[in-house]
Design a protein around this nucleic acid. Sequence first.
DNA 1: CCTTTTGATTGATCTGGATAAATTCGGTCG
DNA 2: CGACCGAATTTATCCAGATCAATCAAAAGG
Lengths: 236, 236
Amino acid sequence: MAYVDRGFNSGGGRISPTSAEFARAGIQNDCTLRPARHPQHSVLFYEGDKAERVYELDEGVVMLFKLLPDGRRQVVEILNAGSVFGLSAGEVYDCSAESLTPVKVSTLDRNSLETSPSLQRHVTRCLLSQLETLHDHAVLLGRKSAMERVSTFLMRLVPNRGGFGCVGPTEEAGEDSRSVTLHMTRQEIADYLGLTIETVSRVISEMKRKGLICIDRQDQIRIVNICRVCQMTGMH
Amino acid sequence: MAYVDRGFNSGGGRISPTSAEFARAGIQNDCTLRPARHPQHSVLFYEGDKAERVYELDEGVVMLFKLLPDGRRQVVEILNAGSVFGLSAGEVYDCSAESLTPVKVSTLDRNSLETSPSLQRHVTRCLLSQLETLHDHAVLLGRKSAMERVSTFLMRLVPNRGGFGCVGPTEEAGEDSRSVTLHMTRQEIADYLGLTIETVSRVISEMKRKGLICIDRQDQIRIVNICRVCQMTGMH
DNA sequence: CCTTTTGATTGATCTGGATAAATTCGGTCG
DNA sequence: CGACCGAATTTATCCAGATCAATCAAAAGG
C-alpha cells in the first residue's frame, strides 16, 4: 500500500516532536498530573519509544497506529476523552499515538498507578472497554465487507449508538437523522477500516447516491436514515 | 519482568504469577478459587451471557470468538496458561469462550479483584498483553496478505519467538527447525486469520511445496527454516 | 489573480482470495 | 477388513476490492 505517510510530517515539513522533545520541554516531571495541550497532528509518542509515561485524554481525539516496514499502516484505536493510553506491557510503546484534533492530556503517575486501588479500577475499566472495542474491530477487519465497515464506522460516531441500539423503524421524528464529525481524512479512515482510500470514497459516494447520508462538509456527514445505515453494519 | 506475552506462545515460559500463586501467598480467601477441568471443545460462556465469573487459565488453550447474525465467525483471541478472561466492561460477556484443548481454569473472586492491589496489577498486566496482541492482530487482519497471515500465525507459535526475534541466517544448527502444535482445525485457523479454510489450506500447501515447513501430523507442523518463514510475516 | 499543492472522487483494469465442486485422507464402526 | 463419514485438500471459476491513472475541488501561496 506504499503511500507517503502524511501523519508523520504534517504541517509544512517539520517532523512532529518526539516524546523526548516533550520531555526536554519540561512539560512535566515524573510524579505530577498537570494537563498539557497539543495541536492537531501532534505525535505524542512513537512505537518503539521507551514507555515512560501514561496518558489520560481529557479533551479531543487521539489515534493509535502501527506501521509495517514497507509503509503499510493500520490505525488500531481511536480514543476519546476519558481514555487512558500509553500503558505498555513491555519496555517500549507498541504503537504510535497522534492527535486527530487539538487535545488536552494529563500524565498519570506510575507510582499511584501501582498502588491506588481506585486509580487501578479506573485504568482497568478503560482497558476493558478498549479490549471490547478491539474485539469488535477484529470482527470488522476480519469478516465485514467494505460497505459494512463504513456503516459500522459511521454508527460508532453516533453518540449513544456505539452499541447500535437501533430503536426500530418508527422512532421519534428527527431522531432518525444525525450529524457526525469524522475528525479524520479519507486516508486515516481507510487505514482504520483496513481498506484503500478509493474504496472508502466509493462506498461513501454510494451511500450518498442511495440517500442514506449527506456530505455537509468534507469531515461532516449527516446520516439521513440511521436505521437503514444501522442495518448495513452486518450486525442486524 | 521484561518478557512480553504475545498471548500466544505455547511452551513453558510462564508470564506472571497465576492466581494459584496469589492464593499460596494468602492474598485470597479460600472460597474464591474453584479450579475446574473441562474437556476439549467446552464452551465456558457465550457472548451475551451475564458476566458473573472471571476466569484464569491454568492449563490448556482457550479461544474467544464473536459471531455475526449470518454465521460469520471471528476468533478474537487465543489464550494460554496465565491469561485472565471473562472480565467484562458491561453486564454481559462480549464474546464466547471455548477450550481448544482440555483445560484447567480457576475462578477469580470479584471482590478481591476490586480491592487487592497486587491482584489488580496482575490483571492489568494480563489485559495489557492482550491489548498489544490485539493491536498486532489488527495489523494482520487489516493489512497483511494470506501468506503473511499464516507465516505470522506460525511464528507466534514458536516459543520465545512471539516477538519474532530472528537471530539471523546462520544460527545454531537445529535451532533453525522447530516443531509447533496448532491445537486448532483449519476452520478455526481461518476464522482467526480472517481467511477461508481453502485459502489457509492453499497457503500451507505452498509453504510445504517451497520446503519451508513439513506437516508431520494434521495439527503438528515442523518449521524447517524459521528465518525464511520469519521474513514472510511482513515484519522484516 | 493565477499557479501549486493537497485531498477527494471517478473510471478502467487486475488480482488475491472467495466460492463451488470434486477428490482424498483419516478415523471409526459394523 | 471394508464401508462410511466428516474433515482436509485440490482444482476451477468468480468477484469484491486493490491498483493504476485521471480528473475535480478547495486551500495556500506567490
